[in-house]
Design a binder for these strands. Structure first.
Length: 609
RNA sequence: GCCCCUGUAGCUCAAUGGACAGAGCACCGGACUUCUAAUCCGACGGUUACAGGUUCGAAUCCUGUCAGGGGCACCA
């Protein structure tokens, strides 16, 4: 899994010159001159010279640690020096030697770092022009000629759609948006669990106790209620399990009655899911179904047995297994054993995941296959990917498990549709909407009813999505009503509010000036804002390379905060003519950058709220 | 027994191996006749679980310990 990630970043480094980083050219030529200067000093030259934004508030610049690397190399070569002071010495010498550097108005040797500062007035217009010219595409990467498939959501029919599922959809959706924006051709895939033991239990219960009934009200909830009932009954009455197993056998034998009811009830779930996706603003390019890969899977299992890769233990009452560690000649337990078919010949996840993985690559010509699946399936996916390779399907190495931790309820209660400890998506959405509507009525009563509802929907949805993206994937999230409905502080509404304020200023101005000579001194808040805006392209790149939407979630909030500070300290409309014009343009650029960032997270940017 | 993840401010969480570890919440004190106060400003708050190691430099990498969570043959 790691290898996939690092291959990916190597690729990106190779094509770095194609990227549209804001100060790429200036930094590249600065690096070259730095190399020459170090060469003249006859000191070791680092392989790579990296530039990072300087950490000082209100100053816009980049620093490099190159002199540390050089001094450390000298020390390793036997020279008796204190590395930090030697680094500072080298930095100072180099600085003298270099003189002025194109594109930077101030250079500095500080604590061993070599810092190059950007004169804000010189580049302010460049940043703003870039944003305003590129508009919605500001921050995007150049096309990579690589096709990536992201499989996410994967709901089970005949079951609930709850907040645990939400984390998956939100994460997968945002990851897809970011990859696409970063320049990859992105295929959004859903994989519906429309068959399996859970479906059979449901069908058994339906046939026995609810025959002929139709869903009432919220379909997904109705489906879940029957599922919970089925599990309960089978747990309490062991004899029912045999009955349900019979239903399974009938399904396996293509019993027309069972198939008919299965199809009908399955569709109820699918319709319910589609409503949810519509609400969430999610769209998929392709739907795979477990039911469609089940038979190919069984055929594949037979082939694997013939090839001697899988061991058929059915004759002694066992399942069909793959002994991965044995196949790989590994002593230590690593991949363990993968069961690919039940002893009664019915299918398992693995039966279906193997053919599906191959189908994805063959039918969609993808280069990477990403699986957004919770962390508990890490070993399982590791097994699948490795076994694909063993089977001779090399692209197993191009599969990547984007794992995330589960969502718990307060008190460490695990969400379980089996046990009915769930918060339904629909309840959550309605509650959030109600709350958002109440607040918008309080804050902005002059809006029309339609506007208020529209705003409330955007705000509620953003508020639900953002917390799922603003924590690291591998941290357990606790779902808490109070926090989910808190629209203040570090939350989507804060970011949306910044967008609204920017919009409000722009609306009050007659127009956005095309170009202004920014030859006055800029405020600290203006410099920070320009700096922040200019970082988006790099953040997008990093987010895509590391498969981390969190990067963008953090960025969006930081940008909003920087803008709020600017808003507070720098009047726009009442400022003197040139300053006013400049700030209007800066505000327009911020609005665009905020909107682009939020869009990547799957969050809408209201014009008013 | 083996493997994976987590441990950072009272709470929830950030932080490309870099400069002084930052936000939000909570608490305390300020700012609305001024571009929307869903905001801003200030104060408070830290032995980054612990012990070693690598490195010029470690919250970050390595080893070990402790604590919590998850996974490991027919669940998904």
């Amino acid at each position: 899994m790691r290898r996939v990630a690092s291959d990916h970043s190597q690729h990106a480094i190779m094509h770095r010159s194609e990227e549209r980083m804001m100060f790429e050219q200036e930094l590249d030529s600065a690096s070259q001159r730095l190399r020459q200067s170090l060469h003249q000093l006859d000191v070791p030259i680092p392989d790579q010279i990296e530039w990072m934004p300087t950490p000082f508030e209100g100053q816009w610049g980049f620093g490099t640690n190159a002199c540390f690397l050089t001094a450390a190399a000298e020390a390793r070569a036997g020279k008796k020096v204190s590395v930090p002071s030697r680094a500072q010495e080298i930095a100072e010498t180099v600085l003298n030697d270099l003189g002025p550097i194109t594109g930077f108005t101030r250079t500095e040797a500080e604590k061993g770092y070599l810092n190059l500062y950007i004169e804000p007035t010189q580049y302010a217009n460049r940043v703003i022009d870039t944003v305003l010219d590129q508009g919605e595409s500001f921050g995007s990467g150049d096309p990579k000629k690589q096709q990536v498939m992201v499989e996410y959501s994967q709901p089970n029919t005949h079951k609930a759609f709850h907040v645990g599922h939400l984390r998956n959809v939100i994460l997968g959706g945002a990851m897809s948006n970011i990859l696409e924006f970063a320049g990859y051709n992105t295929v959004r895939a859903n994989y519906i669990g429309d068959i399996g033991w859970h479906v059979i239990q449901w069908l058994w219960c339906y046939l026995k106790f609810h025959s002929g009934e139709e869903p009432k009200g919220d379909r997904t909830r109705w489906m879940q209620d029957i599922y919970t009932e089925a599990v309960q009954l089978i747990d309490d009455h062991p004899e029912y399990e045999a009955e349900a197993r019979e239903v399974f056998a009938r399904w396996e034998n293509d019993d027309p009655e069972i198939k008919r009811i299965w199809e009908k009830t399955r569709n109820w779930s699918l319709e319910g899911f589609n409503e949810i996706y519509e609400n969430l603003g999610e769209q998929f390019d392709v739907f795979f179904y477990e039911s469609e890969v089940e038979k190919p899977g069984k055929v594949l299992v037979e082939e694997l047995i013939e090839q001697g890769l899988a061991i058929d233990e059915r004759s002694i009452g066992g399942p069909v297994v793959v002994k991965l560690d044995e196949l790989l000649g590994l002593e230590a337990e690593t991949y363990r054993v993968l069961v690919i078919l039940r002893s009664d010949g019915t299918s398992l996840y693995a039966t279906k995941d193997l053919p599906l993985a191959i189908k994805k690559f063959k039918e969609w010509q993808i280069d990477k296959s990403i699986y957004v699946i919770d962390v508990r399936q890490s070993l399982y996916l590791k097994q699948i990917f490795k076994f694909l390779e063993i089977m001779g399907f090399k692209q197993g190495a191009d599969c990547y498990h984007l794992s995330y931790e589960i969502v718990n309820l307060p008190g460490d209660v695990t969400i379980s549709s089996r046990e009915g400890t769930i918060v339904m998506f629909d309840d959550l959405m309605q509650e959030a909407f109600k709350r958002a509507l109440w607040i918008v009525e309080d804050k902005n009563p002059s809006l029309s009813v339609a506007q208020k509802k529209n705003v409330a929907e955007m705000v509620a949805l953003g508020a639900l999505k953002y917390p799922m993206l603003a924590v690291d994937n591998n941290k357990v999230a606790t779902f808490d009503w109070e926090r989910a409905l808190d629209f203040e502080g570090q939350a989507a509404p804060y970011i949306q509010y910044a967008h609204v304020r920017a919009n409000s200023i722009l609306n009050k101005a007659a127009s956005i000036p095309h170009h202004v000579p920014s030859e006055f001194e800029l405020e600290v808040q203006e410099i920070s804002l320009l700096d922040q805006i200019s970082r988006l392209p790099d953040e997008v790149k990093r987010s895509a390379e590391n498969y981390k939407p969190l990067t963008i979630a953090n960025y969006a909030f930081d940008l909003a905060r920087t803008f709020s500070e600017f808003y507070q300290h720098c009047p726009v409309l009442k400022a003197e003519k040139d300053v006013r014009a400049f700030r209007l343009r800066l505000t327009a650029a911020t609005k665009q950058t905020l909107a682009n960032s939020l869009r990547l997270l799957g969050i809408e940017s209201p014009e008013v709220m």
